Computed example of a mutant assay.
Amino acid sequence: MHSVFRVNDIKQTVSNSRLWEVQLSLTGDNDPQLATLTQCIKGELWGSTGWHRLGDLMLKVGHLNQAEELYNELMKNSSSDSDRAHIYHMLGFLKNDQGQYKEAVSFYEKSLEIYRKTLPEDHSSLANTYNNIGLAYDNMGNYSKALEFYEKAIKIKEKSLPPNHPDLATSYNNIGEVYRNMGNYSKALEFYDKSLKIWEKSLPPNHPNLATSYNNIGLAYDSMGNYLKALEFYDKALKIYEKSLPPNHPDLATSYNNIGAAYCAMSNYSKALEFYDKALKIYEKSLPPNHPLLATSYNNIGMAYSGQGDYPKALSYLEKALAIWQESLPPTHPNIKGAMNNIDYVKKKM
C-alpha cells in the first residue's frame, strides 16, 4: 500500500506565489480506517485536471484564500466553456464557505448559464448546482427559495442515482436543515434520518459527512430542548471531526460551538465558555473577519456571559456579533433581530 499522510497545512511559498507548500504527517500503513477514508475523499475530489482537484482539496480542508487564488488563476487560463462553468461553480462553493452568500449565488448562476446552453433543465449534471444555490439561500434565511432549489436537485437525483448514493443523502440532509431552520424539527429529523441511513451504508465510519449528519441531528434535539440527546450526537460528530479534519478546520469549530450551546442551555456557563473559546480561536484563524459564523461565536459567548451576570462583557460580544451580521446578512435575517433582542435584554440588566 502507498504511504498515507494527514494534510496539516497548505500555504503559499514566499518566493513563488504560484507554488504552495503542503505540510504532511505520516500516519503509517497500519491505519486501515484512515486509508479507507483517504481513498474515499480522493474519489470525491472534483475536477478534470490535477490543478482543479487541488482546488477542491483546499476547499475540503478549509484553506479558502489559497483556493480562491488558485481558481482565479485557473479562470484566467481557461480555454473552454466547460472549464469556465466548473470554475464558476467552485467559486460559488468557496464564496458560500466565506459567508458571501449573494456572491455565491451569482457564481452558481454564471455556471448554470453556461451549462444551459447545451443541457436541459433537468440534466443530472445540474443537480449539484441547484443544491448549492439552495444552500446559499438557506444561509441567507430565504427558506422558501432554498426549498425550491433543493427540490429541483432531489427530483433529478432520485431519477438518476441509485437509492443509496451519497449525493442523495446530501440532498436529504440539506432539506432537513431548511425544516430545522423553519422550526419544524420532526420534519427535519425525518430527512436527517434518511440522510444518515444512506451515509452509514455508503461511507467509511470516520467520514466528515457522517459527522455532519450526527451534528445536525444534535441541533434538532437541541432545538427541541433535549440537550442530553443533543450532546450524545454532538460527541459522535466531534470524535469523527477530530480524526478526519485539520485542527483549524471551521467544521471542528462548529462542533465545539454546538457543544457549548448545549451546555449554555443547561445553565453550565463555564463549560459552555470553554467550548465557545475553542470554537472562536479556530474561526478567527480560518475565516474572514466578517464571516457570519464568527458573529455566531461572538453572540454565543455574549449570551454565556449574560447567563453568568457579567453584562458589560456580554454587551461587548453581542455588539460585535450584530455588527458582523448587519454587514454580511440580509436585513430581514432572523439572526439580526435575535442579536438586537439580546442586546436590549442585556442593557436592561445593566
Rank of each mutant, 00 (worst) to 15 (best):
P334I: 09
A127M: 04
N335K: 10
D167C: 01
S306N: 13
S79H: 12
N184A: 11
N181E: 12
F191Y: 12
L228Q: 11
K320Y: 06
A253Y: 11
Y130Q: 01
H207D: 14
K236E: 10
D251F: 06
K155Y: 08
N164L: 02
T254W: 03
L161H: 01
Y115D: 13
K278T: 04
A321W: 00
N77P: 00
L203H: 00
Y137D: 04
Q98E: 13
V14H: 07
K60M: 13
D122E: 14
L322E: 04
S223C: 09
T296A: 01
L112W: 06
Q66L: 15
N142D: 13
M1T: 08
Y192C: 11
E103C: 03
R84G: 04
V4Y: 09
S316W: 03
N335W: 07
N257G: 07
Q23D: 10
P204Y: 00
K285I: 03
F149S: 09
K11V: 10
Y276G: 01
L119V: 07
G50C: 04
S270R: 12
R53T: 12
A136E: 05
D122T: 06
A261I: 10
L318V: 11
M75N: 10
Y227G: 01
P289S: 06
L273C: 04
K155Q: 13
M58K: 07
G302C: 13
N174I: 09
S78N: 05
Q23Y: 07
S144R: 00
G55I: 01
V178E: 11
N139F: 00
Y263K: 09
K194N: 13
T27E: 15
K348Y: 07
I154S: 05
K348V: 01
V346C: 03
N216C: 08
S213N: 07
G55V: 04
D138M: 14
G260N: 14
S186E: 11
K117Y: 10
K11E: 15
S270G: 05
Y214H: 08
N72W: 08
P208W: 05
C40Y: 02
P330C: 06
K102L: 12
V7S: 05
A211P: 02
S186M: 12
T170V: 13
S15Q: 15
I343M: 02
T27C: 03
K117W: 07
Y185R: 08
P312E: 08
S125I: 01
Y256I: 05
E232D: 14
S124A: 13
D167N: 11
Q98Y: 00
E177T: 14
S244H: 11
